[in-house]
Nucleic acid binder design. Structure first.
Length: 859
RNA sequence: GCGGACGUGGCGAAAUGGUAGACGCAGCGGACUUAAAAUCCGCUUCGCGUAAGCGAGUGUCGGUUCGAGUCCGACCGUCCGCACCA
């Protein structure tokens, strides 16, 4: 009996899988009749190394892929690299390596690391988004969308990251800081390329309803992000002379047109064009606008920020009453980026408006009366009333409830020609221009005569030049001596290439479709995409809940509408997995300590830590996501080296539900390693032939345990409850081990082990192969069909039913499954312990839940 | 402020409204060993009790139910997302 040696076993089986090409994806024809299943994990950025978080993500996907394979699905499980982006340029600037060399080197390194994990990936489909083969196709569809008007150019105020020297999308600004650099974002005016995601805003919200296998949380986050609101645009005509460009009045957006008769003033954002215009003549206004700009909508200072404003001196007319004049204020709480950047204020029914009105002593006029309130007694303190009620003080709206009032007000506004009902989104069009080198060149040529002209198809891909320098800040493409100087494809005149590159989120918004046929001449092979898409199970971190997952849904729709494929939702099932965390350790005087340097002890239930070398006692810190800065990182290689891949794969799945964070502990991985050995020991002890067991009852019990385990584990994998499935496997192994069926060659035992080898295969595939071979099976475990259970054997033959008296468990009775209620009642009532507890009481009622429980109500 | 999730032993966690704590970690006891490691066996929610057993127990308070960790309401706490969104 030899101890299981993963260092020999694991590479052997990986080679065998390779040699037999078992993970090569089968075409629909080859797979004849098998249903397809597309499993995909969010592809990694090639940062240089696979860390434990990657490992957990890819192992989860691999368990699904292997399980579905065994269950008879034709599986697609590919891998690629999200390879464009800033870190490559940072490396170039810091270390002088070329971004391309750095990236491909990292890919080679990480591919090798991933392969060590024994993943069932079809590596023949691999690509990186920085391959000209890939980004050239991206340029092709970009041009197609440009022709369709989904790509456009406009000057706008953009988020400028002063550290990365580039523009960021709204989605990439977090608390006013760049998502990658962490630098405070500045506002700049630039002409940029945009994708018209707002055209799909409604559809993107509607589509969420059909995504039954997405986490509710992610659907909500997307819905909130798109932020649809219904209301009205209303123009307030200027009283007297209208400022230049505002002949039609000042257009505001409101969701409460029913409260128009409660209007008190009209407010505009500090960066509203009108504020701009007025502050040029009025230093007081200019000073206020400047103050707002500085305070910025950046930080959490918003929370404490006081409502502030300044009167412009202008008045507008109320839309329903030309004689009613409302003052126009510039206010710091109005955002240019939402609606029209202008509002009408109804202080009685909006908290911000009320705060403002109280501060500047503006009128507060209630127009919504809560149910059952006397109009004479209804007064407002410091809290606006935003609830339901009947409109009053409102002329033609009097007596209507809020919803009817909105409709009536919109009707009137429309008939007066002053506006219309409108839907407004928080979502803005997606700015995709980045002033960076290491990205997909935007395939446009700017010609003074012809304007922006797409690069002709035969000139694609527009490749990045290799000879660039990173010694100066800014975009190296701008400094390249020749690259951008070209002839206009339209008129042949002197022209310039666009030097901006695409946001890397564009690269990742269609890669899943390219995997259907990564060698296709077209960006997307329609037949292949229609066969494989949607992705049946997508797995990744929740940090992409809005960014990547929203962009991918949008691009999929856009490309489908352009005829490239047929699917509208790219990801039918989404699973967001938790992170891998680790306890942190620090020196009393500060400074983090690597876990490998820490010795842990438990004395009288108290845990303590000390430094392995210096003996210095350490502080046990919080459990946090593994990160280099906290030094609480355990590299996958260390684990593979010590315990083998399988133990590592087992542990990352065993200790927590997959959607939750899992805490890495050395004890936990040792437990997984013990399990691997316990499983192997059973196979190692196996005899050759199948002979009848000596003990028929024990054999039957083992068979029952086997079929129960198959049922439970199968259900666990189906339901993404890997930790529960693993617990059932531990239980099963304990049962097999302690079963008195000691004849290692008995039929019942062989059946148990045959099932065990296949049940553990998705999680510990190398061990499963070794076990399968030990059993003398022909072929590999990876190709073996999933075990089926016999429902009769999986069911209990005898049940232990608890008997409760007044809800307290007092006894238990043994019955066969399916015993009729009346019979169970009799058995329960005649039980000695039950009788004892019922002494001196009358039985009022007996509830028997078949095969579950007996509850006797007595008193 | 708005929206959402969660709260169970020393720890990670299980429990279609039906025996709370499966499984694992840590701990304790034992076997094997000259010894240790490894391995194997047993115990391990808390309190009282030698034990059989009794009592308490899933953040707090209340409700629905024969029966609530699970459903409903209020509160407390933790985490996540959005945040002056008109």
């Amino acid at each position: 009996m030899a101890r299981y040696n993963p260092k020999e076993v694991e590479p052997k089986w990986r080679s065998a899988w390779d040699a037999h090409g078992v993970f090569r994806t089968r075409s629909p024809e080859e797979a004849a009749g098998k249903p397809k299943y597309y499993v995909l994990e969010m592809f990694p950025y090639p940062s240089g190394n696979i860390h434990m978080g990657h490992a957990r993500n890819y192992v989860m996907g691999d368990v699904v892929a292997r399980f579905k394979r065994a269950r008879g699905f034709n599986v697609l499980h590919p891998m690629g690299w999200d390879a464009f982006g800033m870190p490559a340029e940072n490396a170039a600037m810091e270390r002088g390596v070329h971004p391309k060399a750095w990236t491909y080197q990292n890919i080679d390194n990480m591919r090798a690391q991933l392969k060590l994990l024994g993943l069932s990936i079809d590596w023949s489909r691999e690509f990186a988004t920085c391959d000209p083969d890939y980004y050239g196709r991206q340029q092709a569809w970009f041009i197609e969308l440009f022709r369709q008007g989904l790509v456009f150019r406009k000057e706008s105020v953009v988020n400028w990251d002063p550290v990365d020297n580039t523009v960021l999308a709204n989605e990439q600004v977090i608390d006013g800081r760049g998502w990658r650099s962490g630098a405070l974002v500045e506002k700049r005016k630039l002409t940029q390329w945009f994708l018209r995601i707002t055209d799909y805003a409604d559809e993107l919200i509607e589509g969420l309803k059909g995504l039954a296998r997405w986490p509710e949380k992610v659907r909500l986050m997307q819905e909130n992000w798109i932020g649809k609101s219904r209301g009205a645009r209303v123009s307030f005509p200027f009283a007297g002379h209208a400022p230049a460009g505002f002949d039609k009045g000042l257009e505001v957006y409101t969701t409460r047109p029913d409260t128009l008769y409660g209007a008190s003033f009209v407010g505009i954002a500090a960066d509203h064009p009108l504020a701009d215009q007025l502050s040029r003549q009025n230093p007081e206004l200019a000073a206020f606008v400047e103050e707002c700009r500085k305070g910025g909508a950046t930080e959490a200072e918003i929370e404490t920020a006081e409502k502030k404003g300044v009167f412009t001196g202008l008045y507008v007319q109320h839309p329903f009453d030309p004689n009613w004049k409302l003052p126009v204020w510039i206010a710091n709480f109005i955002l240019m980026g939402y609606g029209t950047g202008a509002i009408f204020a109804c202080p009685a029914h909006d908290q911000r408006d009320l705060d403002f009105a109280r501060k500047y002593d503006l009128p507060v006029r209630p127009v919504v009366l809560p149910e059952g309130t006397d109009p004479a007694e209804f007064e407002l303190g410091d809290e606006a009333y935003t609830g339901p009620g009947k409109l009053y003080n409102s002329q033609f709206l009097d007596g209507l409830d809020v919803e009817a009032g909105k409709a009536a007000a919109i009707d009137r506004i429309e008939s007066l020609g002053l506006g219309e009902g409108a839907t407004v989104y928080r979502l803005h069009d997606w700015g995709v221009s980045r002033q960076r080198y290491w990205g997909c060149p935007i395939p446009i040529i700017h010609c003074k005569a012809c304007g922006p002209v797409p690069v002709p198809a035969e000139q694609l891909p527009v490749e990045l030049p290799d000879d660039v320098t990173f010694d100066l800040p800014g975009n190296p493409l701008l400094r390249h001596p020749t690259w951008r100087h070209v002839k206009c494809p339209s008129c042949g005149g002197e022209a310039e290439r666009e030097t901006d590159t695409l946001d890397t989120f564009v690269d990742s918004s269609w890669y899943f479709a390219r995997f259907a046929n990564p060698k296709a001449a077209d960006p997307i092979d329609k037949a292949a995409a229609d066969y494989w898409l949607a992705v049946d199970q997508y797995i990744g971190g929740v940090e992409h809940a809005v960014l990547h997952l929203l962009y991918a849904r949008f691009i999929t729709r856009a490309l489908t509408d352009a005829g490239a494929m047929s699917v509208r939702e790219p990801f039918a099932g989404l699973f967001t997995q938790g992170m891998v965390t680790h306890e942190t350790y620090k020196k009393p005087e500060g400074g983090w300590v690597d876990p490998t340097q820490v010795v842990l002890e438990t004395v009288d239930g108290k845990r303590s830590a000390r430094h392995a070398e210096t003996g210095e006692s350490l502080v046990i810190g919080d459990i946090e996501k593994m990160s280099k800065s906290k030094k609480n990182v355990v590299a996958p290689e260390e684990i593979l080296d010590a315990y083998g891949v399988d133990a590592g794969r087992l542990f990352v799945l065993s200790d927590s539900p997959p959607e939750r964070d899992v805490q890495w502990t050395s004890g936990g991985v040792e437990g997984a390693w013990r399990f691997v050995n316990r499983v192997w020991a059973e196979f190692d002890a196996l005899g050759e032939a199948a002979i009848p067991a000596a003990d028929e009852d024990a054999a039957q019990a083992l068979r029952r345990a086997t079929h129960k385990a198959i049922k439970a584990v199968t259900e666990g994998f189906e339901g993404f409850r890997f930790n529960s499935a693993i617990a059932r496997l531990y239980e099963f192994v304990n049962t097999v081990k302690s079963s008195p069926v000691e004849q290692t060659g008995s039929a019942a035992r062989r059946e148990a082990l045959s099932a065990l080898a296949r049940l553990v295969a998705p999680i510990v595939p190398h061990l499963a192969e070794e076990a399968w071979a030990r059993m003398g099976e022909s072929g590999m475990a990876v190709d073996a069909p999933w075990p089926e259970f016999d429902p009769e054997l999986a069911a209990d033959q005898e049940l232990v039913l608890p008997v409760q008296i007044n809800g307290k468990r007092r006894a238990e009775v043994r019955v066969r499954p399916g015993t009729p209620e009346a019979e169970v009642e009799q058995i329960a009532l005649s039980d000695e312990a039950v009788k004892r507890h019922l002494e001196g009481q009358t039985v009022r009622k007996v509830i028997v839940v078949k095969d579950r429980i007996v509850n006797i109500v007595a008193g």
